[in-house]
Structure formats: C-alpha cells, structure tokens
Design a protein around this nucleic acid. Sequence first.
DNA 1: GTCTATACCCTGATAGAC
DNA 2: GTCTATCAGGGTATAGAC
Lengths: 200, 200
Amino acid sequence: MARTSGSHALKTGPKVRLAALKLFALYGYAAVSMRQIAAEVGVQVGALYNYTPDKQSLLYDLMHTHLTDLLQTWRSQKTDTAPEELVLQFVTCHLNYHLDKSEAVFIAYMELRNLSELNFAKIETLRKSYELELESIITAGQRACIFSVEDPKITSFAILGMLKEVGTWFDGEGRLTKDEIIALYRDLVLRMLGVPASKP
Amino acid sequence: MARTSGSHALKTGPKVRLAALKLFALYGYAAVSMRQIAAEVGVQVGALYNYTPDKQSLLYDLMHTHLTDLLQTWRSQKTDTAPEELVLQFVTCHLNYHLDKSEAVFIAYMELRNLSELNFAKIETLRKSYELELESIITAGQRACIFSVEDPKITSFAILGMLKEVGTWFDGEGRLTKDEIIALYRDLVLRMLGVPASKP
DNA sequence: GTCTATACCCTGATAGAC
DNA sequence: GTCTATCAGGGTATAGAC
C-alpha cells in the first residue's frame, strides 16, 4: 500500500509553509505564534527552525512565492491580442487565481505592514509590476481609441480594488458559481473602460 | 493664558482612544501592546484600565464609533431624490468620509478578525446595514429603468470594493485633489450602473 | 486618577541530547 | 531531523500606595 495519499505524504518543509499559510490567513501574522504553527504541523517548536531562520522569513517566503507565481501565471497566459480582449484575459486570469488561492492572496494584501523594511521593498516591487500589467493594457487601449477613460492610473486602481473585494466574500457556496462571477466582472470592467456593450 | 490649545487640552480618556486609533492603524491590533498605547498617551500602563476594561473593548469601541458615525453621516446627508442623483450623493459622502477619517476606516476593514465573536456579530450588523444603503439605491434605480445592471448585489459589492481601495493610496499629496478623485469615481460608478454619459 | 510593583503566562529563538 | 529544556524579554491585567 503506497503511503502517498493525503497530506501525510508531505515532508515537513512544505507542511510548515502550508500551516503558516493557513494560520496567518485565519488569525493574522502577529497573532499567530511559532508554537501554534508547530502544533498544526505536528512537531515541536524547535523543529521549525530547520526550515526557516525566523518567523519573518516565513511570512516573506509566502508573499514572495505568491507574487512571483501570480506574475508568472499571467505572463504565461496572456496572448498577443487587442487591448479589449487582453483586458478580459487579465480579469479572468486574475479572478481565477484569486478565488483558487485565496489564502495566499489574502495574506499578501493584509500583512504588508508586518514585513521588515527590506522585505517590504522587494514585495512592493513585485506588486507594482503586476499593477503595471493592467495599467499598460489600459493605456494601450486608450491610445488605440478602443477604451475611453478619464484617468488610466485611477481606473487601473479602481479595477484592481473592485476585483480584490471578491476574495472577501466568495466561498464557492453562494448563489453564483465562479464562472458566473467572472462573467459579471468582465462586463463591469468593460463598462468602466467605456467599451460599448456588445449585443448578442 | 488659557491652556486649551493643541492636544494637551484633551483629557486622558479621549487621548487613550486617539492613541489606540493611531497605533492600531499603523501596526495592527495584535502587534500593538498596552504599554505602547500608554507611552503614546504619556501615562503608565495601569492608568489605561481606568478608561477601558481591556484591550478588546478598546478595539470594539473604535470600530463601533466609526460605523455608527459613518451611518449617521450618510443618513443625515441623503435627500429624497432620484436614484441617479442619490447614488452620486452616496459616493461623494462615502469618499469624503473615508478620506477624512482614514485611520478609523482602515481599522474597521483590517481588524474584523480580531474582534471577539460577540463583538464581531454586532459590528457585522452595522456594516451590513451600510452596505444595504447602497444596494437599495441600486435596486430602486434598476426598477425605475434608470440603471441597467445584471446583478444589483454584486454591483453593489464591486462599487464598495472599488471605493474602499482609494484609502490605501490617497494621502492628500498626490497628483490629484480629493475633489478630483471624487469626480473620477462618480463617473466610474455611473458607468458601472449603465447610465449613459451626459454630454455637457 | 495615576503611580509602582507584581502575578502569571506566552513570545521567538537557541543549545545540546538522541 | 526532532526532541526537551531553557533563556531573556514582553504580553495583559490587577493590587494597593499616594
């Protein structure tokens, strides 16, 4: 009988990250102790320090992994197409990622102020380059007269803020499926960009 | 010489709340100690407990005060007018409040999970009645065929999420003034609601 | 109302046995 | 790699003097 089923197949290293991910998302970085993480993993406190030099690095690792994963996911999915289609690709990719990996996403939004100064700077760089992905689509569409927005930067912030909110209430058990929600938001984004509604 | 200038005129009670407001907003509830709050106020730790039974009540007081103040502000400002105008009143009132009282607003969004179960339930009730204010405007406008939205509830969440985001980057020193930002968001909200742009 | 002193528990992190 | 034991410090909250 192979012993590869469930989380028991995981070695301690990944289990530490998973436990921290779960607990930080639930209670917040500052409210979670290394002892709690150890208990969740099923080891004693001292053993954690074989896998992370300290608690701060654990937080940084989670946020860094999330952001590079998000960026890489988008950059590998986007195609060379017109801004109108590209922005819809972005919304779909962004929401799929956010709804599937809600814990990592939540931590990345909530725990920025608990990063050390140095770690914060690195994370901010990644975050801004993701923001820029959307903003440059909007600017390109604006130049091509496909979009009609008053302020591309504010519109980009507004769209990202709107999309971020979804993670705070979606739990997969509500009135709407993930795909229905994505369809609604795709429509809202086109409206914000001043794209006339297409009649079927 | 009257000794009523600056914050020195404040009695200790309000100073405790102000210190907690500032520190919770900066570092987060869980990361702030009662000793830090006492130092900010300029008293010793024990003195704080003349003004709050415990740290949890301090957090609850701040959030409760904020939400009742927000609700009361809106309900006293709104007029009996058409949905199209009413929703613009809501956006203006909401953004003015959020940009003026950014610390209390930030705490109310960030520290929900640090409330006790009982306190959380009370705060959630207040928060939902505020959300309902916007949702009912949208529903009314939809029935009157002034708005054209696919899903009033999602649209309401999307608008509140978009507006919430402003507080995370606005600091009064950027490229745009508060009134310019409000104007941009009023326009975005009308677009999301399917109101045709009015030509001047 | 504020102070000092203190009770009691938990914190992150380390050392050394196994 | 994990355990147990331990360190130094800080956490909330209280008691009693002034």
